[in-house]
Amino acid sequence: MSVAMKQTVSGRASHSALAAFFCVAAVVAAGPASAGGEPLPSGTSFLTQSLQAQQSDEATNPGMLWISEGALIWQTPDGASGASCATCHGDAGTSMKGVAASYPKVYGKTGELLNLEKRINLCRTSQQNAEPYAYESDPLLALTAFIARQSLGQPINVQIDDASRAFYERGKAMFYRRQGQLNLSCAQCHEALAGKQLRGDTISYGVGNGYPAYRLEWQTLGSLHRRLRSCSYGVRARRFEFGSPEYLSLELFLAVRAQGVPVETPAIRR
């Protein structure tokens, strides 16, 4: 793992990490944003200085281990096609740059809403003739994080169009709907109370720009849907499946809402 990691730690990547760091600092200085105005603050702004430094240093960010693993998977042939990701997509640094910042997205051929994880699995089944990865499995997390890493510092740019509008509205309704035994909506905490103290923690704006992220509570890398399941659990609400239509729609709404926030995968989160 450490040799592979060394390969990933290139001058290019650490330069953009630094850029992303300053970008975040600028957003925070501008203060909390409203929809349509300044981008929302990234969850990074609520980390301690030392955790922020750890996140932006590729040598100390624990999530970089998955990036290295993803880089290996990218190059490795798989499935009946004998093709690797690189066979078709070449250098990820070129072909995948900005891709993660534009997801979730409706797949034109089927009208299905896909996040990055689902898009990777579609490629595996339809192009590589390989089995889809299980959601939250290490290879899927690693490849998702590796592809997202190619958008480091790129502003999230997910637009609503005719194809995605119904998904967006569904996600928005979920965000504003009270749920669970504790009868709380996402918005009550992550909009109205964002920035306030919940015991030792600061409530974030619910921006998914760092996922898959290394969460200290998990001591591992996890997907945005894993984080959403934690939130559902927190308000004692039903936890939907990984990759479920409910969380996919919510992911789309969150991405549209996070317009302009730079991608920070793999972020460190509490």
Partner: peptide, 30 residues
């Protein structure tokens, strides 16, 4: 919420009118 409909305080003795309650808490007050 009977006093302030917009409150963020959970209802601790209520089981009705709640959406998508986790199965382990369904029908039980907090």
């Amino acid at each position: 919420s009977r006093i302030n409909p917009k409150t963020a305080m959970p209802p601790y003795y209520r089981t009705k009118g709640l959406a998508d309650v986790a199965p382990e808490y369904e029908g039980r007050p907090a």
